[in-house]
Design a protein around this nucleic acid. Sequence first.
DNA 1: GCAGATATTATTGTTGACAATAAAGTAGTT
DNA 2: AACTACTTTATTGTCAACAATAATATCTGC
Lengths: 220, 220
Amino acid sequence: MQQVDIPRTQTRDIVDALKARIFSGELRPGTRLIETELARDFDVGRGPVREAFRVLVGEGHLQSHAHRGVLVRRYTREELLEMGCAREVLESLAARLAAEKTLTEEERSALRASQDRMNVAEAEQDLDTYSRENRNYHTLIETIADNAHVADLIERVRVPYLGLRLPQLFAVDQLRQSNEGHRLVTYAILAGAADVAEAAMRSHIRAGNAHTAQLPDELF
Amino acid sequence: MQQVDIPRTQTRDIVDALKARIFSGELRPGTRLIETELARDFDVGRGPVREAFRVLVGEGHLQSHAHRGVLVRRYTREELLEMGCAREVLESLAARLAAEKTLTEEERSALRASQDRMNVAEAEQDLDTYSRENRNYHTLIETIADNAHVADLIERVRVPYLGLRLPQLFAVDQLRQSNEGHRLVTYAILAGAADVAEAAMRSHIRAGNAHTAQLPDELF
DNA sequence: GCAGATATTATTGTTGACAATAAAGTAGTT
DNA sequence: AACTACTTTATTGTCAACAATAATATCTGC
């Protein structure tokens, strides 16, 4: 479940470091990144920094304007909804694929364990944990679905930066409703009911999108 | 319908040139690309070439191994099927979105014109033209669907390199069947029948995937 | 002749200096 | 004060030389 040989290179290090900073919220959307500064910070030349930028632009985490540098990607509400639309079909595809497969015993228990953790977080109304476990849950389903390309595409329509602030906007009844959706998906996959899994996941994601649509303007 | 200001930069030029060579089949999958050679060919330094590589790796056209350079991406049959799976849901989503929209008169006639061109190619059994028009057709639907993210994702699960050889493998009755699918999609979109458009596109793509599954081994 | 160690070579990884560009600032005119 | 033309500055784009790595060829001892 782990690739062994990833020769470290400066570009790779910078890519990972920047990605971590973006995901953690340390680098806010719209922040401009200056090659020289980062080169100094990381104590490397500008070449590797530039290449890291190109990688991150490719992954959609940065946006670049020629001769004007790069900045941490901003999402408009419209973009988020466009992405949600794609996520809906992709994640429900993943759920279907997972349900269609004959699961190994490890996969079954991993799925149950993940669901349990979310249940606990729900019961304790621990929004932070729930948010983290939610992400793990979806990743787990992608892993089980065993389709690297689909997983890759889903990764592209996930929004990283709201991660830290979204929990605070998550009301408790939304949490219950969200986990209700998860349980449906979980049991459908365990039961091998592909159609149910797909449909359940679709409406689960759709509910999330409806939530995004109502986010206050100041978040964009 | 056209963005105006794209400041040309060497990296951009190289990216475009390489992409063209890959799509045209001039650069075959598995071909190793050497920075120095390309730098000489394009008469530039190695920096821009390296950055272009990173962009193309990000777009999935090249694959890179640290310290061992990049090569034109190879697809295994399994990968192609994985991608087809994702394409299925994404393209049918695009068809649905297109059908749900109230089309402008331009969009309606563009769609009819595209369908007409494919009909002609079908009648004349011009596989080459049909293949090209087929691609344009799908792109047109994405444009009409008006969801940049979905279009972007579809671009990622399209296989460029078989473009030139696939026509030769395309039997005439497959061509007829393929265009039959297009007609269904076209009329469904024009009629605003979202469900039909989605379902028709889905089975259209699925038929294509079934075809890929049966490609001879020597193509991989 | 062959396995292993050692040198050679081709190629990528990295850097610091220079050129080109766009933005910010300044002066001069009305 | 507002407008333009020019100058300055910050930053990106580019290059050519050097360092590090992996693949290849050569040598050595058996």
